[in-house]
Amino acid sequence: MKYRYQNGKLTIYLEEEIDINSCRTIRGVIDGYIMKYQPYELVLDLSEVKFMDSSGIGLILGRYNLIKLLDAKMTVVNPKGNIKRLIELSNMNLECVQYE
């Protein structure tokens, strides 16, 4: 999983499949980076995600709650195909989701 940290902004490029099985590892890695950098902004880039189910929604919401605790902001970018519909369905009041 690639990431980039610059000027307080931490971008994490999620990839492959996000389900309940892979979630535990991914969560550990993301939270590790968040703790290390304590960013002002977290960006989760979904462009390389091949599959995601509601475990991924749980993962995103969980990170959102963590980021709020740190008084930072979070953005989710580039959800594709049915992942975009999945996010819309979940009604995440994420002003933070950007479709592009």
Partner: peptide, 14 residues
């Protein structure tokens, strides 16, 4: 356990 509680909603809409 950080579940979204979306399972059935997703099944029904997909």
């Amino acid at each position: 356990s950080e579940h979204a509680g979306m399972g059935f909603t997703i099944m029904e809409s997909f």
